[in-house]
Design a protein around this nucleic acid. Structure first.
Lengths: 203, 203
DNA sequence: GTCTATATGCTGATAGAC
DNA sequence: GTCTATCAGCATATAGAC
């Protein structure tokens, strides 16, 4: 991979995150990378292929990141740690949730692509089933109330992701400054942890 | 307002919901409405003005809908009822959450527009402060744990909206059929109510 | 009000010289 | 590999006849 080829990839990633797929033209990417538009197509053939490569690798990085937690017997401690990690990671990639959600919500082909790459991936399946086992055992032991693993994950992802999906609205509509946003995010993380800790506890 | 002018508005609403702002051309709208493209611009001047009118009225309808709940002294009963209503409303307008979120997340001008229309609207402010009073009193009484009204609302909206934002992904990636989706949505609503009931309860 | 025709601009993709 | 030039298509918006 040539230096220019890499620069195009990096620039494209940045622009796709900032402006989305439709909002980014191959001309923009070329200008920012310091070459002409034909070269973008020379290396990646189509805008769609360039985007798909970037998109799948970003989703992969999120999943990788989450997979790297190990269970030590303390369910709520681990959940707290997982949320801490996940929250901080997204905080450093604030546009990522919308990029992913946009594809999930509007792009049928991408959903099929993601099914192939992630749902049907044996490695990912193993991680999911391992977590599923943990949840089932904790329910059995009475550490947490009865809940399906899938619901638990959706609850966590909903609360964390939506915090960042609505962040631009918070800034513009309630006119929060950057330091206020930081305070808000910390409070929000605590609220999410508390809601889940209480909401999942056994009766 | 002529009959055609209304038909254009209705068709545009449907198409914007299905395909979003960028994905809908004024030519599409004209074809579907049974007229030529120039007429769309004759009545609404620009695509942006047509979209803004539809968008603001849809957001207004959601807020109106939610405002129509009355407090009867039973906080958790009312919350349950509110979620029931809200969940069912969105279930009949499944694309609405994404349409709104897309504007919130990507369109700076729209955020300012929404601030002007909804945040700075005295009627809306009254409804918010009334609800805020209820929450404060219930915290005081010990019905629910200490929580800010804003956090409470974000929790509810996050859990309900994200259910529908991720629905297309569920259908394609986990290959759920339409009856399975209905079952899933009912289970999901129960899970959300349970999580909030337990998660908001006093210690 | 309604139409046809068109101006103007941007897009992704490719052909072909070097 | 890198460039310039260009094609074909679609978009929004408008001018002007009726």
């Amino acid at each position: 991979m040539t230096e220019l080829e890499m620069r195009i990839l990096e620039v494209a990633e940045q622009l796709f995150l900032e402006r989305g797929f439709a909002g980014t033209s191959t001309t923009d990417i070329a200008r920012e990378a310091g070459c002409n538009q034909a070269l973008v197509h020379y290396y990646y053939r189509t805008k769609e292929r360039l985007f798909a490569q970037i998109f799948l690798s970003k989703v992969d990085s999120v999943l990788e990141y989450i997979d790297h937690y190990t269970y030590n017997g303390d369910f709520f401690g681990c959940l707290r740690q997982l949320i801490d990690f996940y929250f901080d990671y997204i905080n450093h990639h604030r546009r990522l949730p919308f990029l992913i959600l946009n594809e999930l919500a509007t792009n049928h082909d991408r959903r099929l692509q993601m099914r192939e790459f992630f749902v049907e991936n044996p490695q990912r399946q193993r991680v999911y089933f391992a977590f599923d086992e943990v949840v089932k055992q904790e329910v059995e032991k009475g550490t947490i109330r009865h809940i399906e693993t899938f619901d638990l994950l959706i609850d966590v992802v909903s609360l964390v992701a939506m915090t960042f999906l609505t962040l631009p609205a918070l800034q513009d509509m309630l006119q929060k400054s950057e330091p206020e946003v930081d305070t808000y995010l910390n409070k929000r993380k605590e609220e999410i942890c508390l809601l889940l800790a209480k909401g999942l506890s056994a009766d």
